[in-house]
């Protein structure tokens, strides 16, 4: 029986050895890189989460303190039933002593303040550094059918109204959000809703707060209302015009729509959104603001 022998030249042998070593080492290096990327991603996401939790808590506290303003005013009205002149003093104090408050109003139910007056709604607001007073008693105002009056009256509880451009007494050019609180008179037997106290909040301070939140240079924050309307974002065209859902539709980003719906359910989480307005991939950590069901999104570039 003859023995079969293979003769391998040295260069081929060396090449073979190098290839075997490379095949063994390359996956190790790649695995190590993947682990590094995973660790970095995990670390930055933990950072993002911690950062946003802190900021949302801060915003939440401010919003709760703003909500307290009309609630206190409603208590005062319920117990003291003030006259016209006292009401103006109260409203003036609210506007003068609260930087965030743009204007405030006490709007009464039909013939509630005075049996001969259908509309009665004194409103004080800031204009050119002064406090200006108007009375929405003009029937053309029809405040009974406006969101800020109708919604809290119908659902019988305080409510934040979606942000809007001020078209009325404020003279425009300002995005406001209104918090409205119903107030009641108790006659010893029954409690009757008598009207709505509202405060109009300029969203400038909130926009500034949110835009200052950064994890890295290129990361940024978006603030949205309960219906997904964008209140603050680096793109100046977005606030008030766009919602998370309209952007999801325009950029074909179903994950963004999912974020909006999750925020409405009070959920938070991480989502890889892919290309988002630029040719880079981005991920988002989002979190609701429980006080008013608004939400904040921290948008971070991948890698």
């Amino acid at each position: 029986m003859s023995k079969i022998t293979f003769k391998i030249s040295k260069p081929i042998l060396y090449t073979f050895i190098v290839l075997v070593i490379a095949a063994a080492v390359f996956p190790v290096i790649e695995l190590s890189r993947m682990y590094e990327r995973y660790s970095w991603k995990k670390h930055t996401r933990e950072q993002a989460q911690a950062k946003l939790i802190g900021e949302v808590n801060r915003i939440q506290k401010t919003i709760l303190s703003i909500e307290q303003i009309p609630q206190n005013l409603a208590y005062v009205l319920e117990f003291s039933k003030p006259k016209k002149e006292h009401m103006n003093i109260l409203l003036n104090a609210v506007v003068a002593n609260n930087d965030e408050v743009f204007g405030t109003c006490i709007a009464f139910e039909p013939y509630s303040f005075d049996k001969d007056t259908l509309y009665y709604a004194p409103y004080l607001y800031k204009k050119d550094g002064k406090i200006v007073s108007v009375n929405s008693s003009d029937s053309s105002d029809h405040y009974f059918s406006k969101d800020w009056y109708l919604i809290p009256k119908t659902i019988n509880k305080p409510v934040w109204i979606e942000p809007y451009f001020d078209e009325g007494a404020g003279g425009g050019n300002i995005i406001l959000a209104t918090y409205s609180v119903p107030f009641y008179y108790y006659d010893g037997a029954n409690e009757t809703m008598k009207g709505i106290v509202s405060v109009d909040i300029s969203l400038d301070w909130l926009s500034k707060t949110v835009s200052s939140i950064k994890l890295f240079d290129e990361s940024y924050c978006i603030l949205v209302s309960e219906n997904g309307t964008i209140i603050s974002a680096p793109n100046p065209q977005w606030p008030y015009n766009e919602s998370l859902f309209s952007i999801a539709d325009e950029y074909r980003l179903p994950s963004l729509r999912e974020i909006g719906r999750n925020l409405q359910k009070g959920k938070s989480g991480f989502v890889d959104v892919g290309e988002f307005g630029t040719r880079r991939d981005w991920w988002i950590y989002y979190m609701p603001i429980p006080a008013n069901n608004w939400g904040v999104l921290l948008v971070v570039p991948e890698g």
Binding site: H142, S145, K146, D147, L150, I151, T154, I155, V159, I161, E162, E226, N227
Partner: peptide
Amino acid sequence: IVPFDKGTNVFLNGAV
């Protein structure tokens, strides 16, 4: 019947 001015907020907020 709940008469309102405009928009979708009245529906979205559950007032109707």
